[in-house]
């Protein structure tokens, strides 16, 4: 591959050489200078695309997301819980939806992060090299599996299990609305699984980056391997692990398709066996047919999600900067 690409420019070399030979070595080659300038400008434009993209996404989210706030009223929209966009007197309260996103993400992190960190410990400290060489790629593969497949499997495996659990828990209840297993609990489990690879990969690299002398010193002082791992290495890898947690929060908050398939679809209080909506699934399930104010409100839902994500991004940048300072 390298040879092939290296050969290509050779055909153009003589022409450039010829052009140079006609001029003094101290002269200025205007064509060449022109080329350099154009190349520089093109590369600059490429680099600025990212800035333009972020700015225009921000601008669009704000421009399209705010009109509904004025139309419906900030209090009625953000702090009311009744969601009836197509009723005769429509009501657009998204408080439950916001609450569900927060609660769902929180419990997904609570469930996924310990599993992720312990798996990372296994890969870096406990397993021998051969086993680690199998486990780590397996974890990386988990990240590559499309979210719709997680959704499909959640729908086929997790939901029936949850339904059994639900029937057992609410056997005597008269008031409970049965969901067939499509509930907050299913969504939390799917989210926890989906953030695993993020948490594991970044934790692994931060635990590996812990200086060896810390580990040796701890072992030499008589601490057991486990004590060394949990009292010395993990605290030393703290900033990397924090980064992985923040990234996991971002991933869980933004996941749409998988949890749309397993969480049911009613706007409800975030209770484990309730069929629920998240900020993301709200968009997925209603954007296709929403019109008028309803549509504008959905853009506001998008804006709320976007603000959450931007806050997470800022926290992430801060955590990473802090980590960089500590490492110095």
């Amino acid at each position: 591959m390298i040879e092939h690409t290296l050969e290509q420019p050779k055909t153009t070399t003589p022409r450039t050489k010829g052009a140079q030979n006609t001029r003094s070595i101290r002269g200025v080659n205007y064509t060449k200078e022109g080329f350099e300038l154009i190349a520089r400008i093109i590369f600059l434009i490429c680099a600025i695309v990212a800035i333009v993209a972020v700015l225009s996404i921000t601008l669009y989210m704000i421009l399209r997301g705010t009109p509904a706030l004025a139309e419906v009223g900030i209090k009625e929209l953000l702090f009311e819980t009744l969601w009836q966009p197509t009723a005769a007197t429509p009501s657009y309260g998204i408080a439950f939806i916001i609450l569900n996103s927060i609660v769902g993400t929180f419990f997904a992190i609570l469930l996924g992060v310990p599993i992720g960190i312990l798996t990372a410990v296994f890969i870096t400290e406990v397993a021998n090299k051969k086993v680690a060489a199998v486990v780590q790629p397996a974890v990386e593969l988990l990240a590559a599996i499309p979210s719709v497949i997680y959704g499909l499997l959640g729908l086929m495996i997790l939901n029936p299990l949850m339904y059994k659990l639900e029937k057992a828990v609410f056997a005597d209840s008269q008031t409970h609305q049965f969901t067939g297993g499509s509930n907050l609990l299913s969504a939390v489990v799917v989210l926890a699984i989906m953030i695993l690879p993020t948490v594991i990969n970044i934790s692994v690299s931060s635990i590996r980056a812990v200086p060896a002398h810390l580990k040796s010193a701890s072992l030499a002082l008589g601490a057991t391997h486990i004590q060394t791992i949990f009292k010395v290495m993990i605290p030393a890898a703290k900033s990397g692990i924090m980064t992985s947690v923040v990234l996991g929060i971002g991933r869980a908050l933004g996941e749409a398709m998988a949890i749309n398939m397993v969480a049911g679809g009613s706007v409800n209080l975030p209770l484990p066996f309730n069929s629920v909506r998240f900020l993301t699934t709200q968009l997925v399930s209603e954007m296709s047919y929403a019109e008028g104010t309803h549509r504008k409100v959905l853009f506001t839902v998008g804006l709320v999600l976007f603000i959450f994500i931007m806050v997470i991004n800022l926290i992430l940048a801060r955590v990473e900067r802090k980590g960089a300072v500590e490492n110095e």
Binding site: A50, I51, A53, V54, I57, M61, L247, G250, R251, L253, G254, E255, A256, T280, L283, V284, M287, F299, G302, L305, F306, I309, M310, I312, N313, L316, A317
Partner: peptide, 15 residues
């Protein structure tokens, strides 16, 4: 900006 772009969830890109 690049960092932010990679953190934005796909549903927002879709929107």
């Amino acid at each position: 900006a690049t960092e932010t772009l990679s953190g934005i969830p796909s549903i927002i890109f879709g929107l």
